[in-house]
Write a protein that binds this DNA or RNA. Structure first.
Lengths: 239, 239
DNA sequence: GACAAACGTCAACCGCGTTGGCGTAAGGGC
DNA sequence: GCCCTTACGCCAACGCGGTTGACGTTTGTC
């Protein structure tokens, strides 16, 4: 029968909502992602999500046990978005740089989910695929297994850690972010050179970097250190 | 008069609470830290904090404009714990390594608080002192200002980001952590070599590192890259 | 055409952060 | 020693959050 080809998800009974929309796991997750991107973390609540779907908030509980499970489902999609379309290019440094920036960007696109997801081991297909890819790049580049695993570990945790840190500040309510910026202007920019010579001397440079993520620079430093390590192993001599 | 030696904080009028405790900024922050450690982030609310102090939650608003400001105060208390007793030793690499490990350790000592605080700019005395110290070490080591600021930014954010990441997994409820470990055993350890050759080949090494923080390795890689950069600047020649 | 299950809706519960008004105790001026 | 100001803690309430159980309605199945 043709019905067997329909995914189980779509075989369930559907009743349209009062506004006519038909709820689905995917529709709920996609709507949640859109809300997060468009209205920020403070605009994302179960009640508002229900409103955006034209349904009562309590209808969500037919699909997810709670907000916790919903955010986990959202998080599951992040690594997928990071990895779709990626293929190894052959140059290990460029490959890792690309992967790192992809993961960072994918998480930052949805800060709320990233904050909750970054520290968990999902063990799902896309996370495993990313790990396999990173290890593969390092081992094909000639790193011995212990070094490959060590650098892999730092690489993954660095990407997730910076993603979580940057996401957390993006996920702050708008007023809290403004408060942080006001704090900076009111203190760092006004420190006298007598008591804080190093901050005062570099305050213009500090201000420039204030709102940018340190991740790209951190990633480059990691890759430089890894390259130096590999060079030392490959040609362990100085004439 | 001797009273002049008393910090202004303690000169204010004090009225004991119904249970007899006398509220102070420091007492509130310390109690908050203790609550976070003992009962987790979920158990930390303004109402419960008030209860633990023997006061009404609304009494806190005489000391902090809101939970936001209290969080900032908590963040600064952590940085104070990281910085007390530190003095520059003269060798910039050792100094930075020491500072990084101190900050990481201080935050990890209060995982729940670290999760809340790591992404915030407190703008208070101890955070500023840490920033001044780090910039000072780098500039005295001979880094030009742009490089010093870039490395400072990576250094600080990396320390806080790894602290937050590691803290988040420490802060998970025990059953969630066991679930994560079970997921690892059930998936990563059993992946066949045909589909995931790189994970399978290194699974023993991966398992060893699984529960350790990648921060010390990340810190060492950062310092290596910074040292290489400085060496290139100092002797900027190739014959 | 009737039945049972799946589904959306409604009303309510409890806890959250926060606020404004009220009582009260401490300290200074005389 | 008295009074008056003022800082402070307490109380009640508001709006909003996640979540739940009961209730009706739609839908596929026989």
């Amino acid at each position: 029968m043709a019905k067997n080809a329909v995914p189980e998800e779509e075989r369930r009974r559907r009743r349209p909502t009062k506004q006519g929309t038909v709820l689905t796991h995917d529709l709920i997750v996609d709507t949640a992602l859109r809300m997060l991107r468009e209205h920020g973390a403070q605009g994302f609540t179960a009640r508002r999500l229900g409103l955006a779907l034209g349904a009562d908030a309590s209808a969500l509980y037919r699909y997810f046990a709670g907000l916790d499970e919903l955010t986990r489902a959202i998080a599951d999609a992040l690594m997928q978005r990071a990895m779709t379309g990626w293929t190894p290019g052959g140059e290990w440094r460029a490959d890792l740089r690309d992967l790192g920036l992809r993961i960072h960007a994918a998480y930052l696109a949805h800060p709320q989910a990233a904050v909750l997801a970054a520290s968990r081991v999902s063990g799902r297909a896309h996370e495993i695929a990313a790990d396999e890819a990173i290890l593969g790049v390092l081992r094909r580049a000639g790193f011995a297994d212990p070094a490959a695993v060590r650098i892999y570990h730092v690489f993954v945790d660095q990407a997730l850690a910076f993603a979580a840190l940057d996401a957390a500040s993006l996920a702050l309510p708008a007023d809290a972010r403004e408060a942080d910026e006001a704090v900076w202007d009111a203190t760092y920019a006004r420190l006298p050179a007598e008591t804080h010579p190093n901050i005062a001397a570099t305050s213009r440079l500090l201000a420039e970097r204030m709102n940018a993520s340190a991740y790209p620079a951190a990633l480059d430093l990691l890759l430089s250190a890894a390259a130096a390590e590999r060079a030392a192993t490959e040609a362990p001599t100085q004439p």
